[in-house]
């Protein structure tokens, strides 16, 4: 494997086919009125009024995630690095230190290949004291190595 291919594979790869054209998917990721519908994970919300999108390299990308059950909030604070509508969006997350780069590739039938690459992953997750109560199984190892293998082929 060449060094450049290894660099491309460093970090988490995630992809998914979405049933909408890249233009619409890009809008969903860059407009508060859309982001509020999907940005928060299950059991949480991302209120539109708390979403800030200054869509340009160096612009702010901020959201507030509210736990529906407890009301606990989690602020995400990012800066856009790349903005190329409707194909590429990248931001640096100040709250995690990670860099996220998303590409939207047009597929036949008005679909979009959503690909995410997350890098600059914080090292503290490697420290055993941060993973109390977790038991290793080889099945689990095998599963996530598969995920990595899928990502590395891109």
């Amino acid at each position: 494997m060449t060094p450049s291919a290894e660099d491309a594979a460093a970090g988490l790869q995630y992809s998914r086919v979405l049933d909408a054209p890249p233009e619409l998917v890009f809008d969903c990721f860059t407009q508060p009125g859309h982001l509020t519908h999907f940005w928060a994970p299950k059991g949480a919300s991302a209120p539109t009024t708390e979403i800030l999108v200054d869509l340009r390299p160096g612009g702010r990308f901020e959201t507030l995630i509210v736990n529906d059950a407890t009301g606990a909030t989690y602020a995400t604070r990012s800066v856009f690095l790349e903005v190329h509508a409707p194909d590429i969006l990248a931001w640096h997350e100040e709250h995690t230190g990670m860099t996220v780069r998303v590409t939207f590739t047009a597929l036949p039938g008005g679909r979009t290949l959503f690909s995410l690459h997350q890098s600059d992953i914080p090292d503290q997750v490697l420290r055993p004291e941060n993973r109390a109560g977790f038991a290793t199984t080889l099945d689990k190892l095998s599963n996530y190595l598969h995920h990595l293998a899928d990502g590395a082929k891109q």
Binding site: M1, A5, E6, D7, A9, A10, G11, L12, S119, D120, I121, P122, D123, V125, L126, L145, L148, A149, G151, A152
Partner: peptide, 13 residues
């Protein structure tokens, strides 16, 4: 020892 280094290492079959 960084997690990025771990991902890079794991990228090879």
């Amino acid at each position: 020892g960084s997690l990025d280094a771990a991902f890079a290492a794991l990228a090879d079959p």
